[in-house]
Design a protein around this nucleic acid. Structure first.
Length: 489
RNA sequence: GGUCCCAUCGUCUAACGGUUAGGACGACUCCCUUUCACGGAGUAAAUAGGGGUUCGAUUCCCCUUGGGACUACCA
């Protein structure tokens, strides 16, 4: 039975790199079949952020990722859990870790360490000064049982460290092949902190085993500590999972993707008007590519094509331009009705109100032009006001005169006033009628259409006058044309 | 510093050891055009360097160089 997990820390938001890790876990398990577990790793009490768990769960759901087991939000927004391997929040599994640390102590695979932070610190600075490897000097390894008992009795704060054995640790990573490490160069990692909480390494191994995780798909930054985890599995006598270490997402300067140089919270992309499908598609193709002759994949196509073996080894720069392009593509592919729903919060935010019909028309006018949902309100604001401001000097086409502009607008007003409302309900019909008039009168498009469009929108850049007239309707269109004529008088 | 990982256009990437090294984003040119977009047609742009192995290396091996990650009682 395949079982995978995504195990974020609730430090406030879901990181875009975390999203990709979650996504690859999801794609893998949906392709191969099995169970996707969400586990919250909140063992660092100093970094807890209120609402962090809710945020992760909500953002994953926004992205279309729905774990089979783990925390979820019920109808009231309360955190609940589902699945038979809970609890799924590590702070609720507190006792488990101490128990397992105790087992390690008994097996001789770990030892108590009473070194003070000060000693550790001075040791570190000395090692740095001498340019020696920076690691714990294993001093407490040689404490006798009596000495340990004495410290314990005195209530000296201490930790439990892993007794890293000699030798080498070699393992096979699905993405990287064989990797090996010299054990003696690896630190005696703290497993249980002086506050009684476990570190990542202990909690992670204990939970992955107890939750019967078969494949660990995680970021490459965990590669160097994998030997520690393998040693723990061996000490407990457990079977280790299959590992797949994902390449990192990078800043433009090729350092690890960071807040400093990029938006890293998935939430921020949502707020900026990116569609979840676009984000998912984009992030899926960062470090993995099924064919290379195509860029746009539906969720199901991603699942069907997914294999861990095809994941790249090198890190991938997060390229905002390509994301923008992809979002544009997705906006254009998305049905108008859904866009209306998606864009609604952005209109509300911009304090733009209007009829459902007008929102639908606004979307229809701009869906070919905008990059993000957030651009809809600004791009279509002129549709939602009673009158638009125009500058008299901008009404004529640049190579024409105010006189011509005024004459054309007057003729246009008269012509359009004579047209039916049904004509105004059909964008193509408006276009055909106006173009027909231009030919009939022997006018040029430029001298006629520029003033018309500018009068209707008050903007130098906008959709065509036919589209705008359709969106505005007959009465509003005529009012705007008359206003421009007046301004030219 | 130490350990580990990585290396094809600016970016994301494709290429059973045999291709004019392909695609996409971006850039640029032209066409279309009332504006902004769209669209159409093109152009420039890469196998880091050096050694091997081989009839033949982008591809396999080694070295160099470069980049990154890790090096916490953070994950």
């Amino acid at each position: 039975m395949n079982r995978v997990r995504f195990a974020p820390s609730p430090t406030g938001f879901l990181h875009i790199g975390g999203l990709r890790t979650a996504l690859y876990n999801e794609l893998f398990i949906r392709k191969e079949g099995g169970v996707f577990v969400l586990r919250i790793e909140d063992t660092d009490r100093t970094r807890l952020v209120p609402g962090g768990i809710e945020n992760i769960v909500r953002t994953l759901a926004w992205s279309g990722i729905h774990p089979d087991e783990g925390p979820y939000l019920d109808a009231n927004g309360e955190i609940k859990e589902r699945g038979g391997h809970g609890p799924y929040i590590q702070s609720n599994r507190f006792d488990l870790y101490a128990e397992h640390a105790k087992i390690l102590l008994e097996k001789g695979g770990a030892y108590r360490c009473f070194c003070t932070p000060e000693r550790l610190e001075s040791m570190k600075t000395a090692q740095m000064a001498e340019r020696r490897p920076i690691m714990y000097d294993k001093r407490c390894r040689s404490l006798s049982a009596a000495e340990v008992a004495k410290e314990l009795e005195a209530g000296t704060p201490g930790v439990i460290r892993l007794k890293m054995p000699d030798g080498t640790t070699e393992f096979s990573d699905v993405i990287r092949g064989r990797v090996s490490f010299e054990n003696t160069l690896i630190d005696d990692q703290v497993l249980l902190k002086s506050d009684g909480f476990p570190t990542y390494h202990l909690a992670n191994v204990v939970d992955d085993h107890l939750m019967e995780i078969s494949h660990v798909i995680r970021g490459e930054d965990w590669l160097p500590s994998t030997p520690k985890h393998l040693v723990l599995y061996a000490l407990f006598g457990w079977q280790a999972p299959i590992y797949a270490h994902l390449p990192l997402l990078l800043n433009p300067d090729r350092s690890k993707l960071s807040k400093r140089q990029n938006d890293v919270a998935v939430e921020e992309y949502a707020e900026q008007g990116y569609l979840p499908e676009a984000i998912v598609n984009f992030v899926a193709l960062l470090g993995w590519n099924p064919t290379a002759d195509r860029e746009l994949y539906s969720r199901q196509e991603l699942i069907d094509a997914f294999t861990l073996e095809k994941i790249n080894r090198a890190g991938a720069v997060f390229n905002r331009e390509k994301l923008d392009w992809m979002n544009r593509e997705y906006i254009r592919m998305t049905a108008d009705e859904r866009l209306v729903e998606l864009a609604a919060p952005f209109f509300a935010n911009a304090k733009i109100d209007g009829s459902p019909e007008m929102f639908r028309k606004a979307i229809a006018l701009e869906k070919q032009r905008v990059t993000t949902l957030k651009e809809f309100p600004e791009a279509t604001a002129y549709l939602f006001v009673d009158t638009v401001e125009t500058e008299a000097g901008k009404i004529p086409w640049k190579k024409s005169t105010p006189g011509v502009a005024k004459e054309r607008l007057a003729a246009l007003a008269e012509f359009l006033a004579g047209q039916s409302d049904t004509l105004f309900a059909d964008m193509k019909a408006i276009e055909k009628a106006v173009l027909g008039l231009i030919v009939e009168r022997g006018w040029t498009n430029a001298e006629t259409l520029w003033p018309l469009r500018y009068a209707l929108t008050g903007r130098e850049a906008s959709p065509s006058p036919f589209e705008v007239a359709w969106a505005l309707g007959k009465d509003a269109s005529l009012r705007r044309i008359e206003a421009a004529i007046t301004q030219l008088s």
